Computed example of a mutant assay.
Amino acid sequence: MNIIPKITPIYQTSVFKFEDLDAVQQYFDEPGSRYLYSRNGNPNSDELADAVNRWEGGAGAVATGSGMAAIFAALMTYCQAGDHVLCAADIYGGSAALLNQELARLGVSVSYVPFEELYNLRPYVQASTKLLLCETMSNPLLRVVDLRAMATECHQHNLKLVIDNTFATPVLTKPLAYGADLVLHSVTKYLAGHSDVTAGAVVARTAEDAARLRQIGTVFGLTLSPMESWLSVRGMKTMRLRVAAHSHNAQQVAEFLEVHPTVEAVYYPGLLTHPQHVLAATQGHGLFSGMLSFRLPDDVAVVNRFMQRSQRFPFAPSLAGVDSSCSHPLYTSHRALTEEQQAALGITVGLIRLSVGIEPVEELLADLAHALA
């Protein structure tokens, strides 16, 4: 019986069998012809990598065990001991922790570039500088980077541009098309989309970098498991529809919060008042993501009351699931930053980040009205 499944089965195996020595030799002589060991490659993790690669328009990709593993793989593609890295000051706290603590211990130094100075890197570039790491939309203040200008500035200084595209997703923006060299994702978030997977992915613009990524993934053991890979691929099949729904709901939530008397500020690129609204509209093809942040008074009691009263935005320190949630950057995602970094970015007690889900938007608005009353 010839069985041809429509959906790729889950290859829940750590190792694959060979008929004889000739078959083993074929594995090494013809890369990609068959599988040996799931750390080196598995049909499910390869399927996910190929899916993300197609979305981003790259030359190859690797699936990793988490978004942090993706960031690590991306940085290791270009860096070794003695090198220097530039990083946007507006960055996910986990990225900063990796750079400040672990890569510094391995001899890779970092300098942080304020958002306003990203397009003039000359004062920050050293002889050993290899790359700039930044986000399409920054976490948590949703500042939007001009990717084409950023790529031009980096390449003028012979730097690689590494973009974390987690907030935007390739539904909104494909950074490789604007000149980025590597694009990474926490697949955990919008790509998988259902808060039931921990995964990451990195996509390369060149075949050479793609091969280096695969080597790093294998040697460091960053490979994603078959089950997580299968779930991620399943989630990606609805990504286009989900991201559009997330963005539609977030736009209405942002407009509601912008005029609420208790709210001091709202950070969402879809608002006309956002400093990079026009850029975001162009790069995002009219969609602005499901992520936003807003500011309440810097009073723990006020923030706690909001969290306790809200039923549709539970305090769950992650993002991008189909169900809405809220997070607190100062207490969770950005607590590893120094107090000086937090103050410079405006990450205070009153700053709350919302991940707007795909529920009926009128229910979300009613919940926010109740929580803020």
Rank of each mutant, 00 (worst) to 15 (best):
A74N: 00
S38P: 00
T13G: 07
G67A: 00
V303W: 10
L159I: 08
A369T: 08
D146T: 03
P140W: 13
N165Y: 08
V24C: 06
C326P: 05
L98T: 07
L99M: 12
R205Y: 10
E362I: 05
H185D: 12
L118E: 03
K237L: 14
P123S: 01
Y112A: 04
F72H: 06
A280F: 09
G346Q: 08
Y78K: 01
I10R: 10
L271I: 01
E56S: 07
H274F: 01
S186Q: 02
A180I: 03
H274C: 10
A343C: 07
Y11T: 03
A199Q: 05
E359T: 12
H370S: 06
A343P: 01
I358Y: 11
L121V: 09
V259T: 14
A344D: 15
S14R: 08
P269E: 02
G179W: 03
G32V: 04
G193T: 04
L133I: 02
A74C: 00
A63Q: 01
Y11S: 02
G217D: 09
E258I: 10
A149T: 02
L292N: 14
R105Q: 15
R39H: 10
G94V: 03
S324C: 05
M137G: 03
I71F: 01
G57M: 10
T198W: 04
A207Y: 07
V187D: 02
A301Q: 09
R39N: 09
K237P: 08
V278D: 13
V187G: 03
A343D: 14
H334L: 09
G57E: 08
S95L: 10
N44I: 09
Q12P: 05
N158R: 07
V162A: 04
A344H: 13
T77F: 00
V356I: 12
K160R: 12
G286E: 07
F28E: 11
M137A: 08
G346S: 08
A281G: 06
G82T: 03
I7R: 12
I91E: 15
Y35C: 00
E359P: 09
S232Y: 12
N249G: 02
L224N: 05
Q25P: 12
L161D: 00
F18R: 12
P317S: 12
A69G: 12
V110W: 00
T198V: 15
E102S: 14
F16H: 01
